[in-house]
Amino acid sequence: MAEEMKVIYERPTSWANKITHYCPGCTHGVAHRLIAELVDEMGLIDKTIGVWPVGCAVFGYNYFNFDSVEAAHGRAPAMATGIKVTNPDNFVFAYQGDGDLASIGMAEIVHAAARGWPITVIFINNGNFGMTGGQMAPTTLLGQKTTTSPLGRTPQVNGFPIRLSEMLATLDGPAYIARVSLDSPVNIRKAKSAFRKAFNAQVRGIGFSLVECLSTCPTNWKLTPVESMERIRKEVIPYFPLGEFKVVEGVL
């Protein structure tokens, strides 16, 4: 009679089956999901150590069934380095926002990338400091209004946005650097393949890897979830082009 039912979608076992605290339409959850799927698919659950940032993802450690630590604001790459040095066979990733990584933690990320040691960084670029209520971030676009650039960001007052992936790709250390977007099913599928390469770069011992994810913050952008996705396509991608900026041999 009925054909045997096939499982086509299920909860990753590395996902802790908890309701996240993220706002509706926030793509932090999407990035989390991709991490969980890949940790499962690559059989890494027993080896993984996550390093969580100070930012909206501060409670990230609650949502996964692998070991995790919570870093000081901006210092996740340094903490991840310390963990990797003592446990080279583990899979160590840092998860960071754009305030965490590109503002207060700029020194740590640059030097982690320059050392080139095999750790993986998932970098959430949502163009503002979500957690603290929507202040300007290094990635805030020109003209974008935030609570500390109330008239819109201008180069004269606030300087220019930083394209982090391009900048880090100038270094010799990194093995893999890519920018993806979490705005649509197509782009999320591409994002997953970039995550996989980044994970592989570490697992195969090749070197440092980072995936920058263009992400939404509907709450502080004061847009609906759907409008936020559209904003990524219309305003953010033109300034932060998607693509791979560094792929050394052996990364796949």
Partner: peptide
Amino acid sequence: YPITPQNETPE
């Protein structure tokens, strides 16, 4: 640099 509970000061 933003930090709660005084973000309203820099803002």
